[in-house]
Design a protein around this nucleic acid. Structure first.
Ligand SMILES: [Mn+2]
Ligand SMILES: [Mn+2]
Ligand SMILES: [Zn+2]
Ligand SMILES: [Zn+2]
Lengths: 136, 136
DNA sequence: TTTTGAAATGCAACACTGTTGCATCTAAGT
DNA sequence: ACTTAGATGCAACAGTGTTGCATTTCAAAA
């Protein structure tokens, strides 16, 4: 599926900016911040439009958001089974303390959690940190 | 151990602001944001001083920092075995999607993680969300 | 108790992420 | 080609968090 088709499939318009954002996200093996995306764009675009596009992507189930260790958002492409307001791509994330890069780790098994009385679980997030291959 | 003693024990001075911050953190059953702390203070204090005190507390092993689901920092008292630059109070955290409150959950068992080749693990963070008792 | 130096504070300024309002533009269906 | 909802650009704003610098204050030594 092309990026154009992907956008239409999720009810979004295929603009230059959005096609560019998807190109960058697809070409990356890790989650990208809005800053990295802005820097990588081959078209001019306002920061606000990037934020709005990323929010639209997340809402539509095209990308998911991860908070890096310092609270800023990173974005990565979702799998095929995410839709509008419905994300089904739970997996662990790894953040390198050297370069700060955030990776999606589908291979890591997620724990089954049992909470104390009174708490009702919705989702669990396993966030790992350490050193990545490049930073050893 | 009094808050005064606690601060001295960690090489920090016992100022009005810091004693107040510790009082609030100790009285709370959950992690507090700088905003909540500022609002709860019985003394006047500059935001910057609060940030600096919290950073000093974290560095000294008096409190630990948790990121709530939207990237802002919450702070909670550490256990007894944390020291300067050395935190040993790993535990899961729960964030309520209703009220946004963050709780430390010592009861939840942490998973043992095995990473893909190339990644070297330092710490793992289990972040849970859902609904808290008060918000059911 | 007084002195003293280092630690802590207050204030101003700044960087950054993220949001909203509003006018304008454009993608995509007719 | 028209039309219009959706997308963008620009300006302004809110919030978190940091830094530099002058001033104050804690706590230990004299
Ligand atoms: Mn991911
Ligand atoms: Mn905690
Ligand atoms: Zn790295
Ligand atoms: Zn709640």
């Amino acid at each position: 599926m092309t990026n154009q088709e992907l956008l239409h499939h999720h009810g979004l318009r295929a603009t230059n900016l959005r096609l560019e954002l998807l190109r960058l996200l697809r070409a990356s093996d890790r989650a990208l911040t809005h800053q990295e995306l802005e820097a990588g764009l081959k078209v001019e675009a306002d920061r606000v439009s990037i934020f709005r596009s990323l929010n639209a992507f997340e809402e539509a189930g095209v990308v998911h958001r991860v908070l890096d260790g310092r609270g800023t958002s990173c974005f990565a492409r979702c799998g095929t089974d995410c839709g509008h307001g419905d994300h089904n791509d739970a997996h662990a994330h790894f953040r390198c303390n050297g370069c700060g890069h955030v990776y999606c780790l589908d291979a890591v098994e997620l724990p089954s959690v049992s909470l104390p009385r009174g708490f009702k679980l919705a989702k669990s997030h396993l966030e790992l940190d350490g050193t990545c291959k490049a930073c050893r």
